[in-house]
Design a protein around this nucleic acid. Structure first.
Lengths: 214, 214
DNA sequence: TGGCCATGCAAACATATGTTTCAAACGTGT
DNA sequence: ACACGTTTGAAACATATGTTTGCATGGCCA
C-alpha cells in the first residue's frame, strides 16, 4: 500500500484486504472508507455501488493475470511440438500468479482467498461477471490440462481441477493458522513458498489418481 | 422437513438450508422465520440470539456425527490387529456422515457446505465453539490416518489432510454452481453422491502422491 | 374453575448499512 | 484572475436487521 495514492487505489487496496479477511457482506463501506482514510461517498462516486467495487477489486487482480496467462498460452500454442506436463502447467499458472502481482507477492494469497469467496458467498453478480470476462482463458487452460493428462476424462478433469482449486484456496485462507499449528506440532516453521511446494504434488497426485469411479 | 413440527425444529430446518444457500450474514432472521412460518421473536425466544442459532444448527449436525465417529473409533481401537487403509478410513467418515443423518442423506451436503462457511466466513465465535466441542475427535482421527499412510511423513500428511479437507469443503460449498457449470459444459447432471465419488479418489491420490517435488 | 407458566404474536426500538444530496474545495485551461 | 468540470466532505435518507417489549393465548395442575 503506497503511502500516498489516489482515492481509487486507496479504496481498492483497503477493500481487497478487508474483503479477504471478512467476506463481502460482512465488510461495510464505512469500514473500508474509514480505514482507507477517504470519504464514505467516495466509493459510490468512483465505482457506483458496492457490487461494482467488488467487481473492480477482482478486475485489478484478474486483468494482469489473465493477459499474462493468455500471452503465455499463445507462446505455447505456437510451439506445440511437446505438450507440457501437468507439473509444468501448474507451475506455470503459479508462476504467472506471482509475477502478475510483482509489486507485492503477498497479494497472491489474497487473490486465491477472494477466488474462494467468489464461490462460497452468494454474490451471483460476481460469478456472472467472472464467467463473462475470464471464462475463455480458463477454458483454454483446461484444454491444455486435458492434453497433459490424457488418461483423465474431460469431465473428471474438470472436477479435479476444482478440487485442486479448493485445496489451494483453503490452504491460502488458513495459511497463517495452519502454519502456526505446524510449528507447534512439528517444530518446523514453513514459509508460504514451502506450503506451495507441498501443495503442488498433492494436486498433481489428485489429478493423476486412478479413476476407479465409473 | 416435517409437515408439522415444533417451532424449534422448524426454525432449525429452515435456518440450515438458508444458511447453506446464502451464508450467515446474508440470511436474516426475518427470512428464516417467515419461511419457517413462525414469529420473528421466536428465534430470540428459543435460542437467545442469531449467534446461538448458528451454533445450534451446527450442533444438530455434529453431535450425532461425532458420537457415531467416536463409537466407531472405539470399536476399531479394540480390534487393532489390521490398521485400515486410507480409502477405508476416508470412506468410514464419509459413511458415518451419511448414516448419522439417516433421516435425510441430502443434509450431508448441507453439513459440508456449512463447514466451509465456518471457515470462509468470519464468525469467530463459531470456530471457537467448534474447536472446543469437537476438536478432540478430529485429532483422534488424524492419528489413525497417520497409521494408514506410513510412507508419508507426519508433517507432509498434516498438510495433505488439510489440502484434502479444503478440496472437500470447497467442493461442497460451490457444489451448486459447479454442478450447474458441469451441466452446461458437459451436458451431464451430477448428483451430490456423484461428486463425492469423484472427490475420494482425488484426495487419496493427493495424500498418496510421491513427494518428489524439489 | 382459576391461577400459572411456557409459548406465540404484533409492534416498537436501536442500530447499521448502502445510497443520495448539495455545498465547499480543488485543479486546470483560458 | 476567472470559470468550469472534477473531486471531496458532512449530513441526511431510506431501508434492513437483531433485539426487546407487552400483551394475548393455550395447556396443565391444584
Amino acid at each position: 500500500m503506497a503511502v500516498q495514492a489516489g482515492t481509487v487505489e486507496r479504496i481498492l487496496d483497503t477493500a481487497e484486504v478487508l474483503f479477504a479477511q471478512k467476506g463481502f457482506a460482512e465488510t461495510s463501506l464505512r469500514a473500508i472508507t474509514s480505514k482507507a482514510g477517504v470519504n464514505l461517498a467516495a466509493v459510490n462516486y468512483h465505482f457506483g455501488s458496492k457490487e461494482a467495487l467488488i467487481q473492480a477489486v477482482f478486475e485489478r487482480f484478474l486483468a494482469p493475470f489473465c493477459t499474462a496467462l493468455g500471452a503465455e498460452l499463445d507462446r505455447l500454442g505456437e510451439a506445440d511440438d511437446t505438450p507440457l506436463t501437468l507439473d509444468q502447467l501448474l507451475m506455470l499458472v503459479s508462476g504467472i500468479a506471482l509475477t502478475s502481482q510483482a509489486q507485492n507477492p503477498h497479494r497472491v494469497a489474497l487473490f486465491f482467498r477472494l477466488c474462494g469467496l467468489a464461490y462460497t458467498q452468494a454474490q451471483g453478480h460476481l460469478r456472472k461477471y467472472l464467467r463473462e470476462h475470464y471464462g475463455a482463458v480458463f477454458k483454454r487452460f483446461l484444454r491444455l490440462l486435458n492434453a497433459a493428462a490424457p488418461d483423465v476424462p474431460p469431465m473428471e478433469l474438470f472436477w479435479r481441477v476444482h478440487f485442486g482449486l479448493g485445496a489451494t484456496v483453503f490452504a491460502m485462507s488458513g495459511m497463517d493458522s495452519l502454519r502456526a499449528i505446524c510449528k507447534s506440532d512439528f517444530g518446523e516453521e514453513l514459509s508460504v513458498a514451502d506450503v506451495n511446494q507441498r501443495l503442488l504434488p498433492f494436486i498433481v497426485g489428485g489429478i493423476r489418481a486412478d479413476n476407479a469411479a465409473s
